[in-house]
Amino acid sequence: MANLLEVEGLWAGYGDASVLEDISFSIESGASLALLGRNGMGKTTLLATLMGATRQTRGKLRFGEHDLAAMPSHRRAHVGLGWVPQERDIFPSLSVEENLTVVARPGAWDLRRVYQTFPRLQERRSNMGNQLSGGEQQMLAIGRALMLNPRMLLLDEPLEGLAPLIVQELLRSIETMVREGSMAMILVEQHAHQILPITQNALVLERGRVVHHGASTALAADPAALDRWLGVAGH
């Protein structure tokens, strides 16, 4: 299968400071990547760079037939990148349904399918965004990104700070999306043991550089590597 995303020799950061140094990897259409590393190692910066929210100083970024480096950030969603940032950024004064439909683009992901994936959102479709729990807000943020019908979904720590039951619910939904393979996915998460079983490949960043890139199953089976790069084996 052809590569959807190609990152080659990427350097990027904020202002004059480089956070990412010589990053190279690729993702095929429909494939999934666990993006791992300790706090402050560049994971969020990498997603932000894909969305055009940092200063790219060197390297190539290709998404399908598009040169992302030459594309303004507001156009990247239109070519198929869906981003769910840590802050969620839902519209607090719009209802759940309005949050979902205000950004909708034609495709397989519509209101019916989002509600099937996240039944809680259908139950609360008339609630305002600021009336939802943290877990429900996260579901809404993911659902809103899906309504863009992206070719690739970028999830930045979607499980952070959520109750265990909500975490399991979200993990099941994410795993289903990965299995369907209708879109590629990059999933940032602190807890490797939660996402290595549901992703195909893993990339580990340390001080803004790639220190590991390979199959998720192989990394999950290597406690010494997990301990070296993430601090605690698998956790």
Rank of each mutant, 00 (worst) to 15 (best):
M152W: 06
G161T: 05
N3G: 12
A2P: 13
L230W: 03
N201V: 03
G82M: 08
E169F: 07
A53P: 00
T101R: 14
L154W: 00
T176E: 06
G40W: 00
R55V: 10
H191W: 03
M51V: 14
G161P: 09
V96L: 09
L20W: 01
T217E: 15
R112A: 13
G64H: 08
I142Q: 11
N3T: 15
G40T: 03
L20Q: 02
V210R: 01
A34H: 05
D222R: 13
V79L: 15
A48N: 14
L146W: 01
D67H: 03
Q194C: 00
G181D: 08
M185E: 04
A69E: 05
A69H: 03
W229N: 04
P106L: 08
G107T: 11
L159F: 15
W109K: 09
P85A: 05
L196D: 07
Q194W: 13
R58P: 09
L230E: 02
G231R: 04
T49P: 07
R209Y: 04
I174A: 09
A69L: 12
Y115T: 09
V19A: 10
R207T: 10
G181A: 11
R38S: 07
Q56D: 00
E160H: 05
A184F: 04
N3E: 15
W11T: 04
L148W: 03
P197Y: 02
